[in-house]
Structure formats: structure tokens, C-alpha cells
Simulated assay, not measured.
Amino acid sequence: YRFVSKWIMWNEPNKPTWLKPASAKTYVSQILNPGYRGIKAVNPRARVGGGVTGPRAGKGGVSPVDFIRAMDRAGARLDAYAHHPYPVFPGDTPFEGGCVCETLTMASLERLQLFVGRAFPSARIWLTEYAYQTNPPDVFGVSPNDQARFVGEAAQRVYLAPKVDMLIHYLYRDEPEISRFQSGLETVRGVAKPALAATMLPLAQVARRGMKTSVWGQVRPGDGPQRYVLQRLSGGRWVGVGGAVLTDRRGYLRRSISAPKGAKLRLWYPASRLASPTLVVR
């Protein structure tokens, strides 16, 4: 598979569900380092991610903080540290919640950066699984609209984070068993949730001071600068704010507009006639 340029080694080895016992020493000596050497022997330019840790220890597991430290002591070889910063506390958002503890979620991304930086100073960070489950169908999930909002906020959070190169949403479609992941961009019947449009056109509020609101977003379809319209709901119809403008070459945008608390905004991508979910200014 020479065409594959990025690899991750294993899945959540800090949990006994995936590696028993959940030992960093075993993981490094029998999985990570042999895999690293083998991949580099075939393609020296390939990038190899290690760790791939879950956000918390769980029963019989090892916290990601302890796992990172133990991997360092075991002589881990990697180009990037991979992690799954799923929310685990009620009320967690991409920017708020978490804890000053050994659980590492998106809300505590700076702590992940700190521990990885100490153990592996040259390593990048890949967030290879992340999502919110929705209610319905999972009674412990968030609403579909909140899921869409968190997709946009997570994208902004990672955009701002130094050395974080990757954020992968897990998964595309809900699983049939309610006990498994209901974090899809589509329901089990293939009906799109608002998060699907949020994945294509993430939009997040950066700040608000009185009537002035700053937003961040991205147009992900297409290559190079993309033409978009930032719209505001006024009198029951969507009205463009400033007309059609271009993103930067990577599709990113940041705008400051007049929009008080409660105003409703969205991105409109005319090339695909696609609209982002509505962002309500807070």
C-alpha cells in the first residue's frame, strides 16, 4: 500500500477491550515500534501515528496521560500522537467542560498538547476519532442541532490548535444497535442530520461584543479559494451580508458583522447550492 501516506498503529491500546493487558510497554515493543520500522522500510516518507488512545482509562484501563508517559519510557517511535478526544462529561462542548485530571477530551485539548509535547516534542497530533451521539435515538446524546453546532466548534478549535493536523468524525451513519455509536452524520435509515451540512460548511461563533459578532468558518467542497455568502435571517428570509466573497486558499474565512444576541446566521455555498445549519448568536 505505497499510496497510503499516513498510518495509525492499533486502536485505543489503553483499554483492555483492544489490548489485554492495556500495557504501553507491550504496545510499543510488539505493535508500534515494529510497525513503524516496517512502514518506514517500505516508504520512508510515510507518517506513522502512535498512541491512538481513548479519552479515559475505563475499567481495567490506563489513562491517556499515564499511557503517554509510559510510551515515552518504553522508547516509542512515532511521527504523530493519535488520540480520540470524545466528550465524557455531561455538558462537555469542544471549548468548555473537561477536567484537570487524567481524562483528555476536546475540552482539555491544551492538556493533551502539553503531555504530548513533553514526551514527544517533535510529534504532531492527530485526532482520529471524535463525535457526539444524538438523541434521538440515544437518550444520553445531544440534540441533532447541538451536534451540528459542536461539529463547527470542534473544527474551529482544531484550526486554532498548534501542531494539530487532523480531525476525523466518527462515523458517517448511525449503527443499528442502540448500544453502539449513534454519532453519524446520517441516521441508520440514511436520512441526513444537520451535522452533515455542518461538516461540509462548518461555522462557529468566535466572539460577540454588543452588536458586533465575529464568526469563523470553512467551505470544504472544492479546491482553492471558494466563493460563499454569509447570510442573516431577516424578515423571514435569508439576506446576504456583504455579498459573495472568497475564502482563503484553504477554504477558511473569518468575518466580523453586525449581529446581536439571538441573530441567526448561515453560510451559503452557491456552487453546490448548499447551506450550513443555522448559527444562533449567543
Rank of each mutant, 00 (worst) to 15 (best):
L246S: 14
A46S: 12
M71F: 05
Q205K: 02
L160V: 05
M166N: 10
R56M: 06
V281W: 00
L160S: 12
Q218F: 02
D72Y: 06
A198S: 04
R111M: 09
S234G: 03
Y27F: 10
T134V: 14
V188L: 08
R220C: 07
A244M: 08
A204S: 12
A197F: 07
P64M: 03
R189D: 14
A275W: 05
T128A: 04
T134D: 12
E102G: 03
Y130D: 09
A46T: 13
A107N: 11
T187L: 02
L114M: 07
P16C: 03
F150A: 11
M9F: 09
G54L: 04
E102M: 06
L253W: 10
H83I: 12
W18R: 00
H83G: 01
S258T: 09
P90G: 09
G190Y: 05
K193F: 12
Q113E: 09
Y36K: 10
G58P: 02
D79V: 02
V188E: 14
I8Y: 00
S29K: 15
A161G: 01
S122W: 01
N33T: 09
R266A: 11
R77K: 15
P44Q: 09
P136N: 06
P44M: 04
G184Q: 05
R124H: 02
I125C: 02
P162W: 14
I125N: 03
M166L: 08
